[in-house]
């Protein structure tokens, strides 16, 4: 067996990584006339799952119905769903090339695994709800709308950084 030493490579300089990310975003603008996103794919997947389990319930719920489309094609044939598939593939590829593939729970030294996972779950749920209220997450609003000088996106960004810095102190044990 080949012995690739598992020494994770350092991450890229943030400016160059950001430049690459910006070019990807620009290509989305030029090719598609829209930006990047993430949370919408999860909403579509949730709506499709609810529809698969309880079709009547999903169709009568306006929140899900919006993501189910007109029924002529699968709701999963959605731009963001395919984009997020790509995000998984691209992220895996980059992590593999950087020798950063590893199954583990990432946390600070002062917190146990159980609480860390509970917090991750809570954070995920909060962010999903927040993204629905704000009509987008950090990718769809901050990144995309920021570059398009969208008024709502800049208001959103103020909210994100404000909210995060306001509570960061109380959760410092999780990370440091």
């Amino acid at each position: 067996m080949d012995s690739v030493q598992d020494n994770p490579q350092p991450y890229w300089n943030p400016y160059w990584a950001g430049f690459g990310l910006g070019l990807v975003l620009l290509s989305a603008f030029v090719i598609m006339g829209r930006g990047l996103g993430a949370s919408g794919a999860f909403t579509t997947a949730t709506a499709a799952a609810v529809h698969a389990v309880a079709p009547a319930h999903a169709e009568s719920n306006s929140f899900y119905a919006e993501y189910l489309g007109d029924g002529t094609r699968s709701p999963l044939k959605d731009w963001l769903v395919f984009e997020v598939l790509g995000v998984f593939a691209g992220g895996f590829l980059s992590a593999a090339l950087g020798h950063r593939l590893r199954f583990f729970i990432e946390k600070g030294p002062q917190i146990a695994s159980g609480p860390r996972l509970a917090l991750a779950f809570t954070g995920g749920a909060m962010m999903a709800v927040g993204a629905k209220i704000a009509l987008g997450c950090t990718s769809g609003q901050a990144l995309t709308g920021g570059a398009l000088l969208n008024v709502g996106s800049w208001a959103f960004m103020l909210g994100v950084f404000g909210g995060a810095y306001a509570v960061a102190y109380f959760f410092r044990k999780q990370w440091r």
């Binding site: 990047l36 996103g37 993430a38 949370s39 999860f42 995000v87 990432e106 917090l119 991750a120 779950f121 809570t122 954070g123 995920g124 749920a125 909060m126 962010m127 999903a128 709800v129 927040g130 993204a131 629905k132 209220i133 704000a134 009509l135 997450c137 950090t138 990718s139 609003q141 709502g152 996106s153 208001a155 959103f156 960004m157 103020l158 909210g159 994100v160 950084f161 404000g162 909210g163 995060a164 810095y165 306001a166 509570v167 960061a168 959760f171 999780q174 990370w175």
Partner: peptide
């Protein structure tokens, strides 16, 4: 709604450690 959603996302970011894309 976008400011409120943003605040919620910010708090969730510190609690969960990620945003949906990351």
């Amino acid at each position: 709604p976008q400011i409120v959603g943003g605040l919620l996302l910010g708090v969730g970011f510190v609690i969960g450690g990620y945003c949906p894309g990351t």
